[in-house]
Design a protein around this nucleic acid. Structure first.
Lengths: 346, 346
DNA sequence: CTGAAAGCGCTTACAG
DNA sequence: CTGAAAGCGCTTACAG
């Protein structure tokens, strides 16, 4: 069986073009195109004829042809500028990704996934971005000093960051949860339930969540006249394992602590294990407050009291901001409220 | 500040085209294009001149223009035809996704992420696929009877499945781990370490992993003259929670079981919790064997003895098969070996 | 409101 | 090995 792959599909089985639609509808290509663009300046009769022809022929616009003339790619990149291991096991990431895909899908805009965790990868994708093979970028990166931001600026490519990019000053868009207020809410909850020796396990101090949640913690303690005690602060990396070891360290340094605010649910899961191993009980001996309300929050025993981040809304707002920028609007910052979810651990 | 967004960038700041390169190199557009295609039938001198011009001008091909003439999209879809919740917390998924992105990136092929978990979504993406807005599809779906497969066939769009699509007979490509042999290896390991009352927590019986791993389990027991006992089989859904409840159920039905082969690490994590709660010890009282070697395998206590799936290789092979099909080759099946990873739990 | 036509930036037979 | 030219399928001023 010789496989004679035709270089092109035969004319007959090629998808219908705007010309076929025009013929079928008895109008010119220009009119068909105008209907495709939304139907401004088209008579109802013509529009109906065109729409009928489109349906009948199963016409779908050829995006390459459209892009060529509009000078728009018609697609958007989801750029993962983060060492990959950070993502594994981070359920927030999947929610964000599918949320953005869905939000873009409603505008018929394909999402192109690009990973740029290493310098080599960044070099490879730079030309792709510079050549405007996408109209804009949803930038996922939590660490300070991301070189991608500069590149995107220079390429004059609209982009929206997920979370506040630390150390950036220029005009740039981002969408973030209110980390600061979220932390305040949780720590207030702990204080108001009578806890006084409140520890915290923070995220990395080169991430906004790491910095802002710690700031909220310190503020609330201060407001309640509780002295800040360095031994009650441990810095994790958002991973389960780091939560566990930070908790061990805290328990050793301050055995009589009665609560801990943990900057992510995953770390809180680890903290739970460490506490349990010492024979202490949650929440009776130690109250544990998490952050994220990710799936692990309800998968652990006891279920986590935590701060919910609305990832679906974050996705939606990122997409909305990006499309607005692509349409010519200037950058903007969107801060989304968080929500205290009380379960069993605090 | 009036924002006068120009509909198009001015000619001067438009990226260079093939014409600019031709001029710069002193050759015709045709010759530039030939160099871009790999340099067949081009004199070394011309090639060098063109490459120098490309570098000097920072030329990057306009993909839309190329697509228009080649009738190829130049991109590939990663189609998630799976209810989304199955993905949350499944670390394999992230590995697969970034693996495919990387493998495609080496061929300069963008990956377009498409979700199609619901009927409504499927309806929306059908025209996109039919119109060949991608050259091929990496299809992620584990459940029997996926309607996407039929659609892709009808659309005459090359595709490769991740895992064996149950209940399909036609000519179709897939890449999968050797579930059957993997399960055999694990159960053999349990038998050879002296276990005799070996239970299993399977995956859903409409997934290949659910079916094949159970089959391997039964075979090995049979080969060792151990009677099959229905009470030793529980069916989970790959989630941590289902592993926990299945394990509870097994321990109630057969209190003296001495091992359990669990069809996923996530379920094994749940099983560990259930066992621990009854005061039994792993592996002393009960040996636990997982499947996947996902990150949770080393995050739990005791660390899981499990069957490693090589997701990076799976990604690579999926991409390779897909590109081969796009180039005209027929479909093929690729089965990748698994590997027993011995840690603490068995 | 509509049609005729130019043009987006490439690739590819074709002729030499 | 190379150039001239047709053509991929759209959009969009332009003229009416």
């Amino acid at each position: 069986m010789t496989d004679t792959t035709p270089r092109r599909r035969a004319r007959s089985q090629r998808p219908p073009t705007i010309i076929d639609v025009a013929e079928q509808a008895g109008v010119s290509r220009g009119t068909v195109s105008r209907v495709l663009q939304g139907g401004r300046n088209v008579s109802p009769a013509a529009r109906d004829a065109v729409n009928a022809a489109i349906r009948k022929l199963g016409y779908v616009v050829n995006r390459a042809a459209r892009s060529l003339v509009t000078q728009r790619a018609g697609s958007v990149a989801f750029l993962l500028s983060e060492t990959q291991d950070r993502l594994f096991g981070d359920p927030n990431f999947t929610t964000l990704l599918t949320g953005c895909t869905t939000a873009l899908g409603e505008h018929d805009i394909p999402l192109i996934l690009i990973t740029a965790g290493t310098e080599a990868e960044r070099r490879r994708i730079a030309p792709f971005l510079s050549a405007h093979h996408v109209d804009g970028v949803l930038l996922i990166s939590s660490h300070r000093g991301n070189p991608m931001i500069d590149h995107l600026h220079r390429a004059n490519l609209p982009f929206v960051c997920c979370g506040k990019p630390l150390g950036e000053h220029g005009r740039l868009s981002y969408v973030a949860s209110d980390d600061h207020e979220g932390a305040r809410t949780m720590v207030r909850h702990l204080v108001e339930s009578g806890r006084r020796r409140i520890a915290t396990i923070t995220g990395p101090q080169d991430t906004p969540g790491g910095v802002e949640r710690l700031r909220g913690y310190r503020e609330v303690l201060n407001e309640h006249g509780i002295d800040y005690d360095r031994r009650l602060v441990a810095t994790g990396d958002y991973s389960r394992a780091s939560g566990e070891s930070c908790m061990q360290q805290l328990l050793t340094a301050v055995p009589d602590l009665d609560a801990v605010f943990v900057a992510s649910d995953l770390m809180a899961d680890g903290a739970l294990s460490a506490i349990e191993r010492t024979g202490r009980r949650v929440p009776d001996d130690i109250a544990v407050g998490g952050f994220d309300d990710s799936p692990v929050a309800t998968a652990v025993q006891p279920q986590l009291t935590t701060i919910r981040q609305h990832w679906t809304r974050i996705s939606e707002m990122m997409v909305r901001q990006l499309l607005a920028q692509i349409a010519g609007e200037g950058p903007a910052t969107v801060i989304l409220p968080t929500e205290l979810v009380i379960r069993e651990s605090a």
